[in-house]
């Protein structure tokens, strides 16, 4: 199964999905009227795009329809696709693929799939022939280190770890020294899941960030926010607060193999200009893909 097919099947598991509903709407509507717009808006909201973002998308489509004097609902399909693609590509991930050494700080709230994403990411870099080192800086959650260790074995990469409850910044410090000594290309740091409104935990994260900046200035620094596709509008708040604290510069959207559409990334792209870089579409070690706005929208719309 090609990447695109896998994404499509990941996104299209239920009959009840966004795309078939869009198709249903377009096929059943004879004219582009208020009811049509309302229903289209409903579909966007149901995909977690958010009421505000949905409204602005619909307004843009409305303008286009007027300008181009469109009549047939069928013509709206292309408009919608263009509009979603435009928002998502607005700040497409920069082509930073060959900047090494690099250090990736993986952050996010509890339970979004940080550790799993790191496992997949490590495997991905390894496949590309890179030397990877994992840093088990989630020293808080019970057995988080063990979980990461198992992933390091699966991916066949090294790991730096400390005791549970130790200082995460110290783990990252050690990992950086070790990476320098072993000449690793990529360090991927797991961090404890934290709700973004917990001030102390966010301060701790800033400290880790400072250690990275001080100890490893020569490395390309990536701060990857992991978001759960099942999350609703709170994801915007998460992205905003994490951006303020540690200046996230990319997003990984996980659990897209469920029925959740992850439409909130459209709102995030629109509001915060942080690009989505990876998407997780399954539990396998190779189920992490580069995010392509075009494919994402197509999968969303074609079903």
């Amino acid at each position: 199964m090609g990447i695109f097919d896998k994404l499509k099947s990941g996104l299209a598991k239920t009959r009840d999905n966004f795309s078939s509903r869009v198709n249903g709407l377009i096929n059943s509507s004879k004219v582009i009227d208020e009811e049509f717009y309302d229903q289209l808006e409903e579909l966007l909201i149901l995909a977690d795009v958010g009421a505000k973002a949905a409204e602005s998308i619909i307004n843009d489509i409305r303008k286009q329809v007027k300008q181009q004097k469109l009549r047939a609902p069928e013509q709206v399909r292309a408009l919608l696709k263009d509009e979603l693609e435009r928002v998502l590509s607005k700040n497409a991930a920069s082509k930073d693929m060959d900047l090494y050494p690099r250090i990736i700080l993986v952050v996010g709230v509890n339970g979004v799939g940080k550790t799993t994403t790191i496992g997949k990411l490590a495997y991905k870099f390894k496949q590309d022939g890179r030397k990877v080192l994992l840093a088990a800086a989630d020293t808080f959650r019970a057995a988080a280190t063990e979980q990461l260790e198992i992933w390091s074995q699966r991916a066949g990469v090294d790991i730096v770890k400390h005791e549970e409850g130790s200082d995460p910044a110290a783990v990252v410090f050690d990992a950086i020294q070790s990476a320098k000594a072993k000449k690793a290309d990529v360090i991927i740091c797991d961090t404890a899941g934290r709700l973004h409104n917990k001030k102390n935990l966010m301060e701790e994260l800033k400290k880790v960030n400072r250690v990275v900046e001080r100890e490893y200035p020569e490395a390309y620094k990536e701060v990857l926010l992991v978001l759960d596709a099942t999350t609703g509008q709170n994801a915007i708040s998460q992205a905003r607060v994490f951006k303020e604290a540690v200046d996230i510069n990319s997003i990984a959207l996980t659990k897209l193999d469920g029925t959740a559409k992850g439409g909130v990334v459209i709102a995030i792209a629109d509001e915060l200009s942080v690009p989505v870089k990876y998407i997780g579409v399954g539990e396998g070690i190779d189920d992490l893909q580069d995010f392509e706005p075009k494919n994402f929208v197509s999968a969303l719309l074609q079903g």
């Binding site: 239920t14 995909a47 977690d48 999350t231 029925t259």
Partner: peptide
């Protein structure tokens, strides 16, 4: 159920 779940909460 995670309180942050979005529209998909109903399907789940």
């Amino acid at each position: 159920v995670d309180a942050m779940t979005g529209q998909d909460a109903v399907n789940v």
